[in-house]
Amino acid sequence: MARRGAVGIGTLIVFIAMVLVAAVAAAVLINTSGYLQQKSQATGRQTTQEVASGIQVERVVGKANGSLEYIQQLAIYVTPNAGSAGIDLSNTKLVLSNGTVEAVLMYNTSKQAFTKGPVSDIFSTSHEAWQVATNQTEFGIIVVQDADNSLSAQYPTLNQGDLVILTVWVGTDTKGGVFGYGIPPGKKITGEVVPEFGAPGVIEFTTPSTYTEQVMELQ
């Protein structure tokens, strides 16, 4: 009888041990599944943000010098993609290449080359957006449309419905720009407007074979 009781106690101990092991395993599985669920949700949000967000280049307009020898200023119209989250233009890069030189430009919040529209002449050098000291590495901002006032000189955040112009000195007689003395006729220019996250806006155009007017649409 004592032997049977000992066997029963041993079986009970083994059963309790199995229950404890199963409980620990279940707790680990529950914790792991909860972590993986939260991780997958976070990854899904980040992926959605990356896919939906981005910048679209609406058009590119250039202004030639007085004698129509080269383009000295570029105005790049940009807006966020449909469904995009807010885009911080102070963390956005503007890349331009003429096949020989590739430049990367940023917005300098300390200099605040920023103009709130509307403006009658976007190429007027009286605007703060064109008053950039280091022309080879910086762009300015002219605000064309901003219903929610999300764009400021210190915090230029591009939201849905906003439209801004990125101003770029590409070269003048008196001071150098991105491409020295500007863009001559028949020159191919490529580039991107690259936000902190999301799809970049594409810039690609070839200047006319001759410049017959001072202000011209390039893209």
Rank of each mutant, 00 (worst) to 15 (best):
residue 1 M to H: 11
residue 1 M to L: 13
residue 4 R to N: 09
residue 9 I to V: 14
residue 11 T to I: 11
residue 14 V to K: 09
residue 22 A to W: 05
residue 22 A to R: 12
residue 23 A to Y: 04
residue 25 A to N: 12
residue 30 I to G: 00
residue 37 Q to I: 10
residue 38 Q to C: 00
residue 51 V to A: 07
residue 64 A to W: 08
residue 70 Y to P: 04
residue 74 L to K: 10
residue 79 T to Q: 06
residue 87 I to T: 07
residue 92 T to P: 02
residue 94 L to D: 03
residue 99 G to C: 03
residue 101 V to Y: 00
residue 101 V to E: 00
residue 102 E to P: 01
residue 105 L to Y: 08
residue 108 N to V: 02
residue 109 T to W: 03
residue 110 S to L: 13
residue 115 T to I: 03
residue 115 T to N: 02
residue 117 G to F: 07
residue 118 P to I: 02
residue 136 Q to A: 15
residue 143 V to H: 01
residue 143 V to R: 00
residue 145 Q to S: 14
residue 148 D to C: 10
residue 149 N to G: 02
residue 150 S to G: 04
residue 152 S to C: 02
residue 156 P to A: 10
residue 156 P to L: 11
residue 157 T to A: 09
residue 160 Q to D: 14
residue 161 G to C: 07
residue 161 G to S: 08
residue 165 I to A: 00
residue 173 D to A: 15
residue 173 D to W: 08
residue 176 G to P: 04
residue 179 F to M: 03
residue 181 Y to F: 12
residue 181 Y to A: 13
residue 183 I to S: 12
residue 186 G to S: 14
residue 194 V to N: 06
residue 196 E to F: 11
residue 198 G to T: 13
residue 203 I to K: 04
residue 204 E to V: 06
residue 205 F to R: 00
residue 208 P to A: 00
residue 208 P to W: 01
residue 209 S to Y: 15
residue 211 Y to M: 05
residue 214 Q to C: 02
residue 215 V to T: 14
residue 216 M to H: 10
